[in-house]
């Protein structure tokens, strides 16, 4: 991720990938509907470095979020809008350590209706599952997930989400995918104060006006099928 700032970051060093990310923001096309304000042309860069992910894990998570949220005419890549940063901060914070999660045993597998039943905090699940995912990809595709082709990544994620993969140690792949997917959505759409949704890019993409919402007048004006548009406001803008 530091490649954007330093020119030769950990991504190239570890993965040998080509220079990525530098131009991503600059190529962002105006996306908003005609009656909305134009989005910021270039998102500010995510902060360099991770608090939870080890280098190999960072490669996995960046590849995963960039596959699920690719750079296109709507947004820069998932990593460039801060989704990997968001997940990293969530995992090293209280949520990742098991806040509001009942962790006493015993631990039978249970039915789908009984929900999450693993004895793992989110951070522990990510740690074990990313290792297992790379091991699965090496066996299946001959390389770690981040080096897989787009088609291989798609196959892996589809199978993970469809419950077809059991990861090393018997971890149910779907439990990991469910958490990863939810976290990707949070990193994309949560308030930017958490490190994702950089420059409110996802809010601009859909036309969500954010948190400054006194609509007692708007409800009278926009109740006939017309679209209400406003430049989104986040918590930091009001603080």
């Amino acid at each position: 991720m530091t490649d954007k700032n330093s020119g030769l970051g950990r991504r190239q060093f570890l993965g040998g990938a080509g220079v990525a990310g530098v131009a991503a923001a600059a190529t962002l096309a105006p996306v908003a509907p005609a009656n909305a304000q134009a989005p910021a042309a270039a998102p500010s860069p995510p902060p360099a470095g991770y608090t939870f992910f080890q280098p190999q894990e960072a490669l996995f998570i960046e590849a995963a979020v960039d596959h699920m949220v690719p750079k296109d005419e709507l947004t820069p890549s998932g990593t460039d809008i801060g989704i990997a940063t968001y997940i990293d901060r969530a995992l090293s914070g209280g949520w990742g350590k098991g806040d509001r999660l009942y962790l006493r045993g015993p631990w039978p597998r249970g039915t789908a209706n009984q929900g999450y039943q693993l004895p793992l905090t989110p951070a522990a699940l990510y740690r074990a599952a990313i290792g297992g995912a790379n091991e699965h990809c090496r066996k299946t595709f001959g390389q770690t997930f981040d080096r897989c082709s787009a088609a291989q990544k798609e196959t892996f994620l589809q199978e993970l989400s469809g419950g077809k993969i059991t990861l090393a140690g018997g971890l149910p792949g779907r439990a990991f995918f469910g958490m990863l997917y939810q976290n990707v959505m949070e990193g994309m759409f949560a308030d930017p104060i958490y490190g994702g949704n950089r420059d409110k890019i996802a809010w601009k993409m859909i036309g969500f006006p954010g948190v400054a919402a006194n609509n007692a007048e708007n409800i009278k004006k926009y109740n006939d099928g017309r679209r209400f548009a406003a430049n989104p406001v986040g918590i930091a803008d009001m603080s």
Binding site: F189, A190, D191, Y194, A212, M238
Partner: peptide, 13 residues
């Protein structure tokens, strides 16, 4: 406001 209008904190967590 703005503390309370935090979807992640209040609606997700």
């Amino acid at each position: 406001v703005p503390y309370i209008r935090d979807e992640l904190r209040f609606a997700q967590r």
